[in-house]
Design a protein around this nucleic acid. Structure first.
Lengths: 97, 97
DNA sequence: TGAACATATGAATAACTGTTCATATGTTAA
DNA sequence: TTAACATATGAACAGTTATTCATATGTTCA
């Protein structure tokens, strides 16, 4: 696959990687590796403000990396895509040499 | 692999994805998919300033995504790592649904 | 040595991004 | 309806980043 994608696609591709390029979002995604979690659970697990987590979850959701399920007052987030784990593990391989 | 990596590793991981999260750098990497290219060749292929390309090549090199070979006045850049293509293709899979 | 070329670097600027604080929306149970 | 809770949103701020311009380094050939 040596064809260079359309510029439009390249911008989208860069956008996807940008989403992975923040440690808070990576930590959120790792938290979801074990299964769905509510906003409060994630915030507590990471020791961060609910508001921060909520903002970042929106970024993840806009980019279709996570999906939601409402259950009463809570909203449960989970990974939306099989690629998510694979992309992160590829990146980790690179970091670990 | 559900263990969350050390925070230190997570920061490095985020840094790696940040490098992929820019369309200019992605275009440079794609240009190198076919083999090594000089700075001037890359700049011309992308229609951008040599200086811009040089700055971005340094980012790519610092993060060990490309390596160099000097030949006379030119410096030839090439992909340093098999992961590079794989990571990009994984991301592309996600973008293309 | 010098001129011409290829690449790198530093400073400056504009645009973008993550977090916080304050406030709003939406849900449940009384 | 109200109170209490869970989550979302908007504005503001500080920090980061990509590009440009100007200049420097390094290489070749005469």
């Amino acid at each position: 696959m040596n064809n260079i994608p359309e510029l439009e696609i390249l911008f989208e591709l860069a956008d996807v990687f940008k989403v992975f390029g923040d440690s808070t979002r990576l930590r959120i995604l790792y938290t979801l590796f074990d299964g769905e979690r509510s906003v409060g659970e994630i915030a507590e697990a990471l020791g961060m403000e609910h508001s921060t987590i909520s903002h970042q979850l929106r970024v993840l959701r806009t980019n279709k990396l996570v999906k939601i399920r409402r259950d009463g007052k809570q909203i449960y987030y989970s990974l939306d895509d099989d690629h998510v784990k694979k992309i992160i593990e590829m990146g980790l391989d690179h970091v670990l040499e």
